[in-house]
Amino acid sequence: MADTSLQHRDGEAAAPLRRPSRVSALLHRSEALRGYLLMSPTLLIMILGIVAPFVILLAMSTWTRQGFDFDTTFTLANYERTWNEPIFGALLSRSFWVSGVATVATVLLCYPMAYYVAFHVHHRKMMWLILMTLPFWTSYLLRVFAWKVILGYEGVINSGLMTLGWIDKPLEFLLYSKTAVIITLAHAWAAFAILPLYVSLEKIDKSLIEAATDLGDGPVARFLRITLPLSMPGIIAATFLIFIPTTGDYITPALLGGPDGAMIGNFIQLQFGAVNNWPMGATLAIVLMLWIAAIAAVFLFVTRKAQEKIA
């Protein structure tokens, strides 16, 4: 060890410029290489944690179940099944519907909150933001349980309404339904809407709004022509951040959905569990991913067109 380091030092002393210069020259020449080098830890994790499992999933989706083992001959039969059997389409569209409604509700409810903090709070904005996201410091699971308690047969809402004498018997549609899943998702993911919305609203140059007022725009026109288009990136970010993970959500429909509230995530879990058809589960996961990507692309396209029109 000592020897080699000595030699190394000697070598450097003999030709001080040769070796470092080659490396640094390469680094100077190629900006891309420098970029990759900086990203390398993250890149490595991405490859190990995302690309590799994805490749496994992709491969598995072309296999066939054989008892507890796999027949690894290539086949697209699983994909054909997802296309031909109505159950998969129904579960997918139900998932998109539930998650879509939850996303719209969340963004609509969070926008005013973010707006208020961005434009009407002038001191201690940070405290306001922290207060708004405070409920999200508890675990996701606890929040879902809490909703089960709130929506339950003897839950907070039902017993409250009964005490007030507004209803005679508990409302049963509150729990074990799509409604329950939508309400819970909309609440559970609110923090993911408030923050991007706040950031995009906060960035809006207030002088633009003043200028619009000076030029005769009323509050509504001003909002539609200035604030809304300029906060679009926040809305898009919030929509994606909520829509993508909630579509495949598992625990909320499992606990609150009941028989009619089951979503595609529950079915994928079953394939890896009791149904014991891992290739089918892998196929469903990939089909779900493709659909989400397609929907996201359409959504981006539409919002961009809309933005151009407004501008």
Binding site: I87, D260, F267
Partner: peptide, 11 residues
């Protein structure tokens, strides 16, 4: 299991 899960999902 496969059949029963489908039935529970409404099919």
């Amino acid at each position: 299991n496969e059949l029963f899960e489908q039935i529970k999902a409404g099919f």
